[in-house]
C-alpha cells in the first residue's frame, strides 16, 4: 500500500508542477483584475442586507416626513415603532457582519469551526424571538397609523392597503422561515464537522 500511495503522491506533485507552468494562472495583471472585482463583490454582498434595509428606512422616513406627515399621537407612535423596528434590525445586521469578521481564517481549523458555530448560534437567536418581536412591533405600528389614514382614504382603499400588508407580511414570514431552516441546517452541518474533527478512532 505504501508504494501505491507514493505513486499517488507522485501523480499529485506532477499535476501541481503543470499548474505552476500554466501561463493563464501566471498572468498577474489578469489575475489581479479578476481578484479586485471578486473582492469588491464579496464586500458588497456582506453589506447587501444593511444597504437594502437602510434604503427602506430612509424611504419610509421620507414618506412620513414629506408625503404623509401624520398628526395624531397614536399614528406618530405607530411610525416610531415601524422606523424603530427597522433601525434595530439594521443594528443587528451590523453586529452580525462584525461577528462574521471575527471568524479568523488564520486560526486553526478547529478554532475557526468553533467560532462559526458560535456565529450561527447567534443567528439562530436573532432569527427567533428578536425577529418575531421586530415584525410584531412593525405590524402594530402599521395598524396604529390605519385610523388616521382612514380619514383620507376610501374604505376600499384602506382594505387594499391593509390587505396588501397582510400578504406582504406572510411572504416575509415565509422567506424568514426558509432562511432560518437553511441556517439551522448549516449549524448542524458545522457541529457535525467539529464532531468529526475531534472523533477519536480506536
Amino acid at each position: 500500500m505504501k508504494n501505491e500511495f507514493e505513486a499517488l503522491q507522485h501523480q499529485w506533485q506532477k499535476d501541481k508542477s503543470k499548474m505552476e507552468s500554466d501561463p493563464k494562472e501566471n498572468d498577474m495583471e489578469q489575475v489581479l483584475s479578476t481578484f479586485q472585482k471578486n473582492k469588491t463583490w464579496s464586500t458588497n454582498f456582506q453589506y447587501g442586507n444593511i444597504i437594502i434595509l437602510s434604503i427602506v428606512l430612509v424611504g419610509i422616513s421620507a414618506f412620513f416626513y414629506f408625503v404623509a406627515p401624520v398628526e395624531e399621537l397614536l399614528s406618530r407612535i405607530g411610525v416610531g415603532l415601524m422606523i424603530g423596528g427597522l433601525f434595530v434590525r439594521i443594528i443587528i445586521e451590523c453586529i452580525s457582519v462584525s461577528k462574521t469578521k471575527k471568524i479568523n481564517m488564520l486560526d486553526q481549523a478547529l478554532q475557526t469551526t468553533e467560532d462559526t458555530i458560535a456565529f450561527y448560534k447567534f443567528r439562530r437567536k436573532i432569527h427567533g424571538p428578536i425577529t418575531i418581536l421586530i415584525i410584531a412591533l412593525y405590524t402594530i405600528g402599521f395598524y396604529m397609523i390605519s385610523p388616521e389614514f382612514s380619514l383620507y382614504f376610501e374604505t376600499w382603499q384602506m382594505i387594499l392597503i391593509d390587505g396588501s400588508y397582510v400578504i406582504g407580511a406572510i411572504i416575509l414570514i415565509l422567506v424568514i422561515r426558509k432562511n432560518v431552516k437553511k441556517e439551522i441546517k448549516i449549524l448542524s452541518d458545522i457541529v457535525d464537522l467539529k464532531k468529526k474533527m475531534l472523533e477519536e478512532i480506536v
Binding site: 481564517m105 488564520l106 486553526q108 481549523a109 475557526t112 469551526t113
Partner: peptide
C-alpha cells in the same frame, strides 16, 4: 498560514458546496 486559510475557506464553503 496559507494552508490554514485554504482549509478554513474550504470548510466554510461547506454550506454552498451542498
Amino acid at each position: 498560514w496559507i494552508y490554514r486559510i485554504t482549509v478554513n475557506t474550504c470548510l466554510q464553503h461547506i454550506r454552498k458546496e451542498k
